[in-house]
């Protein structure tokens, strides 16, 4: 464990907590893409199946369980408890255009052609693009609440910090995983436009509003 990975994980944890608290406190999931949340639940499910096959550390196990529970909890709040507040008219990104290419890519480019490895690879590819329905929703409505912006910033920062973690591990531990690294770069790049708006607008106390 190095500082970049720890900060990355904490940023990831902060993101999911912000999202759950936002929905719980406001009793509303307005502005949140249920489609992105479905994709994230698929990502955690496919990746953390190794909870039952291999033990890494207490930290690793606890974090995996937290992300799984938080993810399904978010789906429960969005699609059952506060269903009436779900803004489905603006959440129209076709997720099959993300899921199918990720399935095909995972079958073609992986470290090993075994079920768990392919599911892990699929989850890495899918995570890199899972935020697109949410970003599409923000661009469609032209704005995002501040709390939603903080959520997106924390979530984007997490994989960005992992990039530094991978650079560190390459030199310090001779460890690297090209699939994770390339997907992580793609994932972080997708947030760049948002990061720019967040820094120039939200941090200065303004609402995140896209130019007309």
């Amino acid at each position: 464990m190095n500082i970049f990975r720890l900060l990355g994980d904490l940023s990831h944890l902060l993101a999911v907590i912000i999202l759950l608290l936002k929905i719980w406190k406001t009793r509303s999931c307005a502005g949140i893409s249920g489609r992105s949340q479905i994709l994230f639940a698929a990502v955690y499910t496919a990746r953390y199946l190794d909870l039952v096959t291999s033990y890494i550390s207490a930290y690793n196990t606890v974090m995996k369980i937290v992300f799984l529970v938080a993810s399904y909890g978010t789906l429960y709040l969005m699609f059952l408890k506060f269903k009436a507040t779900y803004d489905h008219n603006h959440d129209t990104f076709r997720i099959e255009f993300l899921v199918l290419p990720c399935v095909i890519l995972a079958l073609l480019i992986n470290h090993d052609f075994s079920a768990l490895e392919i599911l892990w690879t699929f989850s890495i590819y899918l995570e890199s693009v899972a935020i697109l329905p949410q970003l599409f929703m923000v661009s469609k409505t032209g704005e995002a609440e501040s709390i939603t912006s903080h959520y997106l910033f924390a979530l984007g920062t997490y994989r960005g910090l992992y990039l530094f973690n991978w650079i560190y591990r390459y030199y310090a531990e001779d460890h690297y995983d090209l699939i994770a690294i390339i997907a992580g770069i793609v994932q972080t790049v997708l947030y760049c436009d948002f990061f720019y708006l967040y820094i120039t607008k939200v941090l200065k106390g303004k609402k995140l509003q896209l130019p007309a």
Partner: peptide
């Protein structure tokens, strides 16, 4: 370099 199968990250 070590094998690429190590899955110790989240």
């Amino acid at each position: 370099l070590k094998p690429k199968y190590l899955k110790d990250e989240l």
